[in-house]
């Protein structure tokens, strides 16, 4: 999460050459990260090739075939409308990943920008920005998303905006404290004295140094986004049915948890596995991108 980052001793300036390849091999070197990456990749592929992999139309209802347990006809069973859960799961992966990554990306861009500005500008601007950020953080995420969604109206795009809003605060906060630490480093000071323009300092030194922390945080936040999204469906303001969406499937299936546990259980499990993978990947990224962790090896 964000917090430990701000307490850590800042990293040494990154060497540009081959950093990416090095980072990649460092991630790959870790078993759990490999697992994580493999699973996430599998999900992405499933989402991409959903139309080919699916056995049914994800929104085709079949009255006679409602609430059937997994079988050869319906590999993962059917829901209360007789829709094929396996096919809905595949299409649902698209939405889950789109909502997860979309909202985090959006929140990240806004949060990083605010954090950078606050950290670099200092003074009153910083103070003002951070008070706004504090305010955002004071809202319960779910409530913030709920209220914002009520304002914006229904729709997947609005859902992404609403979730993104709740991510602005945490990103801004982390980035700002990272920037403050990086800024205090002698080499940044030196660069400034050498007359390197601030913009370049920011891009070259600051952003590169805070990037690992942000990436790791983003990885974890993607799972939070998907969880929040399902929470909104639970409260009845999420994705519009019958859109194949995991959160919606879980929320709708909770009514049949004893009669037909697979309706909510299967999307729940799919979601859980994705989230575990994302977390493993994020952990791996942290270890790989954070040079200090190399010391232990």
């Amino acid at each position: 999460m964000s917090a430990p980052r701000s307490m850590q001793v800042p990293a040494v300036p990154a060497t540009r050459s081959g950093a990416l390849a090095e980072g990649w091999s460092a991630v790959w070197a870790q078993r759990s990260a490999r697992w994580g990456m493999g699973i996430v990749l599998a999900y992405v592929l499933a989402a991409l090739f959903a139309p080919w992999l699916a056995t049914h139309d994800p929104v085709a209802q079949a009255v006679e075939a409602a609430m059937q347990a997994p079988s050869t006809a319906h590999w993962l069973g059917t829901d209360s409308f007789g829709q094929d859960i396996y096919s809905r799961l595949l299409y649902g992966a698209r939405l889950a990943l789109a909502i997860g990554f979309g909202s985090v990306l959006l929140g990240m861009v806004a949060g990083v920008a605010l954090g950078l500005i606050a950290g670099l500008a200092g003074g009153r601007i910083e103070w003002a920005i951070m008070r706004v950020v504090d305010g955002l953080l004071a809202f319960p995420e779910l409530i913030l998303a709920m209220a914002f969604l009520a304002v914006l109206g229904p729709g997947v795009d609005n859902l992404v905006y609403a979730l993104a809003l709740s991510f602005v605060g945490p990103f801004a906060r982390t980035v700002r404290s990272d920037v403050l630490q990086v800024r205090a480093q002698p080499y940044v000071e030196a660069a400034r004295l050498m007359g390197v323009p601030m913009r370049e300092i920011v891009l070259r030194h600051v952003l590169l140094n805070v990037a690992p922390g942000i990436v790791v945080q983003a990885g974890i936040r993607v799972s939070i986004a998907i969880l929040l999204e399902s929470g909104l469906s639970f409260l009845g303001v999420g994705v519009v049915p019958p859109t194949p969406d995991w959160g919606l499937m879980i929320a709708e299936g909770r009514a049949f948890i004893t009669m037909a546990p697979w309706i909510s259980g299967i999307p729940g499990l799919a979601l859980a596995i994705l989230l575990v993978a994302l977390n493993l990947l994020a952990d791996g990224l942290r270890d790989a991108l954070d040079p200090r962790s190399g010391e232990t090896r």
């Binding site: 709920m146 109206g153 229904p154 303001v237 519009v240």
Partner: peptide, 9 residues
């Protein structure tokens, strides 16, 4: 075109 909102809306 189904539009979902909370009960108040």
């Amino acid at each position: 075109k189904v539009e979902l909102s909370d009960r108040a809306a």
